[in-house]
Every structure is written in structure tokens, then in C-alpha cells.
Amino acid sequence: MTQANATHSSNHGDGHGDEPHVLPMQVYLGVWAALVFLTIVTVAVSRFDFGSANTFVALLVATIKGALVVLYFMHLRYDNKLYLIILLASLLFVSIFFTPTLIDLHTRDALDPIKGRTMYKLSTSKAKSQDAAPAPAAH
């Protein structure tokens, strides 16, 4: 079975030879130090109360840490752009899943307040009795 010597490199070759692209040690240690520092920042940030922006700030810090891990530890900054596209696509589709579901959860009582009320104020802690009787409709 003669192997036709189609030796051209794969069609999206990024010009590197066969030698792997190795980052200097300082980059890894620097990224690690930044991550530790940002973890401390995460805890510190949660101490202050920014009101409704609390979650946003916490997620922002987490995203910075995530970006550091993805770009340097996972080598995405020097690799084929296709892998970055795959990661960003997965995050895009996560947001596609979140947005309409949360819109639905929070606008059920837009036209009629009664649709927003959950009837069962049920708690399983044995102390509370099960309040299952449907409250009379508010006129």
C-alpha cells in the first residue's frame, strides 16, 4: 500500500516547526502570583457592599482569574485561534440558555400580579407547619 507522500502540513498550520512552544518559567510564576493575589481580592471585595453590583464585581474578578488561566496555563494565547472560538462559543450558548429563562422567571407577573405569587410557602424544617391552603384570591 504505497503511501502517497502528500506531505503538506495540515491546512491550518500556524507556521511552527515541530518544536513545541515553551513559555519561560517567569510567565508561569507571574500568572500564579497574580491568581493568588486576585483570590485575596475576591475575598476582600465580598466584604464591601456594592448593593446590587455585588455579584457583578465578584464575577468580574473571577473572569479575570479565568482569563489568566485560559490564556497562559492553557496556552490559548499562542495557540490556534479556533480553540479560543470554541471556548467563547460555549460561553455564548451558556448566556443564550440563561437570558430567556431568567426573563421568564422574572416577568411572569407582568400582566397579572397573581401569576407571580408562589402559593406554597413551604419549608421542610419541621418547625414550620405546611401552609398549603390556597390563599383566597386578592380582589
Binding site: T39, S46, F50, L59, V69
Partner: peptide
Amino acid sequence: HLVDLIWIYLFPLLYLVG
């Protein structure tokens, strides 16, 4: 690294609710 990435998001959301 992905397993670490997921914990990075998990930590503030679960442990540090504002």
C-alpha cells in the same frame, strides 16, 4: 485547568454571597 476554572467561579458564588 478547566476543573480549576470552574472552582474559581464556584468559590465566590457559593461562599461569598455579597
